Simulated assay, not measured.
Amino acid sequence: MDGMNEADVSSVGALGDFLRSRRARLSPEAAGIVSYGARRVPGLRREELAQLAGISATYYTRLEQGQSTNASESVVDAIARALGLDEDERTHLHDLAKPAPRVRRRPSRPEAARASTVRLIDAMTDVPAVVMGRRTEVLAWNRLGHALLAGHYDFTAPGRPADRPNMTRMLFLDCHTRELYARWDEEAARAVASLRLVAGRFREDRALAGLVGELTLGSDEFAALWSEHPVLDCLCGTKHFRHPEVGDLELGFEMLHLAQDTGQRILTFTAAPGTGSEAALRLLAARTAAARTTSPANAHDAPSVAANRLTVP
């Protein structure tokens, strides 16, 4: 594939995989196509999808096989309409179809949360909050966020790029985190769908590709979910916890994207007023505050009492 840079080559497979996965789930009947004869694979044939999109079968085949990387926005929109993609899937398709930016040869500096962002989440004493980088690594968390999600980790770990926690890695490879989620399968599917969207947006990110490779090799469950190419921008919803200290919680979450197109986000949790989850969250906040008063250090230079139970490298 002459003229393609390294990032282009790495993203070609993702574009083809995504198109094939969505083509396979669309039946001829649903697309209004009369089907003749037996089909070797589920879903629409390439020429049928091309017909629905109003483009040539040859061009669509070249696009799916990675032999064309400069599809116009109008062509991508036509394919998205033919496939019946939702808004998140349409965005993902446009990301994958764009020519990838050149890969930087010099190593990039580790991500860091802005000091003002850290101060913001520290001020949210009654709201668990986490600052995540684009690869779902924890750049900072407040005391209650740490106590809710990862009390068995060193509180100061996010400040050390070499061993900072990663929310997706924890979910699939850390047994304590797996036990934390009462509906782990639901959480895992949501995490993979969100990571897929980010991977399409930041195709030049080698560290992100490395995380996907690590999880694919380390978790059969992650590999199976990733192969289905789910896509979802998880901005809000509900998570169900089975916390080792305060029991079951049902918490609403909000994902707040930060400015400057860095991929950094703030994840926050709240409980509905008057519920048992609100009482449990208040209890956890009270215990966290009490533990903090026994320590001479401030919020970001010492691990919490909960962290002394187990430190995970």
Rank of each mutant, 00 (worst) to 15 (best):
residue 226 W to T: 06
residue 17 D to M: 06
residue 261 D to G: 06
residue 45 R to P: 11
residue 299 A to D: 15
residue 153 Y to A: 07
residue 193 A to G: 10
residue 256 L to H: 11
residue 91 T to N: 09
residue 12 V to F: 00
residue 197 L to M: 04
residue 259 A to V: 12
residue 279 A to Q: 15
residue 62 R to G: 04
residue 133 G to F: 06
residue 272 A to I: 08
residue 12 V to Y: 01
residue 192 V to N: 02
residue 269 F to C: 06
residue 173 L to K: 10
residue 106 R to D: 12
residue 98 K to M: 11
residue 261 D to I: 00
residue 246 V to S: 08
residue 181 Y to K: 05
residue 123 A to L: 10
residue 118 V to A: 03
residue 272 A to E: 14
residue 23 R to D: 04
residue 103 V to A: 11
residue 127 V to K: 04
residue 258 L to D: 01
residue 49 L to I: 04
residue 252 G to P: 01
residue 234 C to G: 02
residue 149 L to M: 13
residue 243 H to K: 13
residue 60 Y to H: 09
residue 260 Q to F: 00
residue 30 A to M: 11
residue 206 R to K: 14
residue 188 A to S: 12
residue 18 F to G: 00
residue 24 A to G: 11
residue 110 P to T: 06
residue 258 L to S: 08
residue 3 G to I: 07
residue 230 P to D: 03
residue 168 T to F: 09
residue 292 R to S: 09
residue 296 P to D: 00
residue 130 V to G: 06
residue 10 S to L: 13
residue 4 M to F: 10
residue 119 R to C: 07
residue 95 D to Q: 13
residue 258 L to K: 07
residue 213 G to S: 07
residue 40 R to I: 08
residue 298 N to L: 04
residue 59 Y to Q: 10
residue 202 F to Y: 15
residue 265 R to T: 15
residue 182 A to I: 03
residue 208 L to T: 03
residue 204 E to I: 06
residue 112 A to Y: 01
residue 24 A to R: 13
residue 180 L to I: 05
residue 180 L to F: 07
residue 306 A to M: 14
residue 260 Q to K: 12
residue 123 A to V: 02
residue 66 G to F: 01
residue 179 E to N: 13
residue 102 R to G: 13
residue 177 T to W: 02
residue 212 V to H: 03
residue 59 Y to L: 06
residue 215 L to H: 02
residue 122 D to W: 05
residue 245 E to R: 13
residue 1 M to S: 15
residue 283 L to S: 15
residue 64 E to T: 08
residue 38 A to E: 11
residue 78 A to Q: 08
residue 213 G to A: 06
residue 5 N to I: 09
residue 2 D to Y: 12
residue 98 K to S: 12
residue 47 E to D: 14
residue 142 N to V: 10
residue 296 P to N: 07
residue 13 G to P: 00
